[in-house]
Simulated assay, not measured.
Amino acid sequence: MTDPLLTFGVTPFFLHAHPDDESISTGGTIAALLSVGARVTVLTGTRGERGEVVPGDLHDLEGTDRLGPHRVGELAEALRELGSPAHAFLGAPPARTALRSVREYSDSGMRWGDDGFAEAATDASPTSLSLAPLADVVDDVLAAASDDRPSAIVSYDALGGYGHPDHVRMHDAGVEAARRLDVPFFAIVEPRVETRDRAGTQGPAESDIIEIDLLGTEALAAKTRAMAAHRTQLTIDGDAFVLSGGQRHPIGVTERFRRLFRVPRSRRLDGAG
C-alpha cells in the first residue's frame, strides 16, 4: 500500500490562521513529513492576539498587547517540537514581496452563531486578516513560494473548519495560490466538527480522503509536545486537550485531509514518474 505521506510531495506548505492551529490539526503530519525528509513550510496568518487564555498563571495576558508576542514564542517552541519546519508570518519576509512594506495581519476575532459555527466579530480591526483583500493574502503566499516551490498546499476547508473568518480567508488564499502554482490543495477534515456542513450536505467521500495514522508513532508524541507548548491556548490532560472555554477534545491520533486537486506524479515525495 502506498504511504499516504507521499501524496504531499517534497515541499508541502501548510497555511494556518493562528498559533496552535498547526499543531492541533496538522502537527502529526508535519512531524511525520519532516522525519522522512520533506521540506515543510508553515505559514501563519496572525498572532492570535484576540484569543482567550486558559485559566491559570498566564490568564492576565488575555486582552492585552502582550498576548500576541507571547504566542509568537509559544509557536516557535511548538515548531521546534515538530522538527523545525520553515516558518513565516504572512506579511513579513519571505511571505511578503520586496515591493511592499511589511504588514501585520491582526486576529479578526469571532463570536459563536446560533448554528454552532463561528462567525465574524462585529469589531474586527481594519487590519484584520479576514478583512484584508484576498489578492494581498494570495500575493504573500506566492512570495513565500518563490524560493521553494510548494509541492502541495494544505489548509482549511471552505467553512474554515468551524467557521472562523480567519480560517476561511486562509482557505480562500490557499486555494487560489494552489491554482496559480498548479499544485494540489488538501483541505483539513476537522475532527471537532460534524461531517455535515451548515447546508446539511454530506461530508467528503471516503475516496477523496488522505488519512495519516499517528497511533504509536513519534509523530504523535511530537504533536502532543507541540500542542503543550501553546500554554495560553490549551492544556494537555492525558490523551485529551482542554481549551480556554473548557471544551475537551481527544488529541487526534489520525489526521485526515480531503484532496481537492490531484497530485502530479513528478512532484510526489518518492519522485515516482
Score class of each variant (00 low, 15 high):
107 D>Q: 07
60 D>A: 14
63 G>Y: 03
51 G>N: 10
95 A>H: 03
92 A>M: 10
77 E>S: 10
100 R>S: 09
105 Y>R: 09
63 G>I: 01
92 A>F: 09
82 L>C: 11
55 P>G: 02
70 H>P: 00
105 Y>P: 00
49 E>K: 12
49 E>P: 08
74 E>W: 06
89 F>P: 02
81 E>N: 02
45 G>E: 13
86 A>I: 01
83 G>Y: 08
65 D>W: 03
49 E>Y: 14
98 A>D: 13
103 R>A: 04
46 T>Q: 12
97 T>G: 15
105 Y>D: 00
102 V>T: 15
95 A>R: 03
76 A>C: 01
54 V>E: 01
108 S>N: 06
60 D>G: 02
102 V>A: 14
55 P>K: 07
96 R>F: 02
78 A>I: 05
55 P>W: 06
55 P>A: 13
88 A>I: 08
78 A>K: 06
81 E>P: 00
42 V>K: 14
49 E>L: 13
73 G>V: 05
92 A>N: 01
85 P>C: 04
72 V>I: 15
77 E>G: 01
73 G>Q: 15
75 L>P: 01
87 H>C: 11
60 D>H: 15
94 P>W: 09
72 V>T: 14
88 A>C: 08
85 P>W: 07
68 G>T: 09
62 E>W: 06
42 V>Q: 13
104 E>S: 06
74 E>K: 04
65 D>S: 12
93 P>D: 07
59 H>P: 00
82 L>I: 11
101 S>G: 14
78 A>V: 04
108 S>M: 02
89 F>Q: 05
108 S>T: 10
75 L>R: 13
86 A>P: 01
72 V>Q: 12
101 S>H: 11
83 G>D: 10
88 A>N: 11
96 R>M: 12
47 R>W: 03
47 R>H: 06
100 R>A: 12
56 G>M: 04
89 F>V: 01
81 E>W: 01
108 S>R: 02
97 T>C: 04
108 S>K: 04
43 L>Y: 11
59 H>E: 08
81 E>M: 04
56 G>V: 02
78 A>Y: 07
69 P>E: 13
77 E>H: 06
53 V>E: 03
88 A>V: 08
74 E>F: 05
46 T>D: 11
52 E>M: 13
56 G>C: 03
95 A>G: 03
76 A>S: 11
49 E>S: 13
47 R>C: 02
61 L>N: 06
72 V>C: 11
83 G>R: 09
48 G>E: 08
86 A>G: 12
79 L>R: 06
64 T>I: 11
101 S>E: 14
57 D>H: 03
94 P>L: 07
83 G>K: 10
46 T>N: 10
44 T>F: 08
66 R>V: 00
